[in-house]
Amino acid sequence: MPLDSFTPIELRLDRATYSEAVIYKCFYWYGGEYDVHIEPQADSIIVRLSLPEGKTTAPNTTDEALLSRIQNDLVDFKLRELIGQETQTIRELLVAKAFANYDTEQPLLTPVSDPVGFHFPEGEPSSYVSNYQALPQVQGE
């Protein structure tokens, strides 16, 4: 049924399933079409979608389609969070290593001042590996 007279919808999302960050990131994308109201509670987070003031018709969708979109988006943003948590260290290392070459300072050779191994002189291949292996293991290992 097209939502030409849209009644605001309210969702109660379990905090154990969806973090606050996932919910904010997910519903950020709904802000163009709806007024999004997010209300954190003790165990859950309530999300209300309503039409912005002055708008009388909802975007071209049905309530089933909207709910299905929300469900899919929540799963996708939860996956993004999991990927982010699991790969954050590697991403930081990657970016730091990529731009470390821009440094013009003299190489620092003590393990304390060079914990990641960026400045190991040439001839010591893969010097980062030993440092890297000391990093916390990711989920599933």
Binding site: L94, K97, F99, S126, Y132, E141
Partner: peptide, 18 residues
Amino acid sequence: AAEVPLLDVMATRYRTKK
């Protein structure tokens, strides 16, 4: 692999992109 042996290659690719 437990470590990321291609981190150097990835870093070079990242840098190339920028």
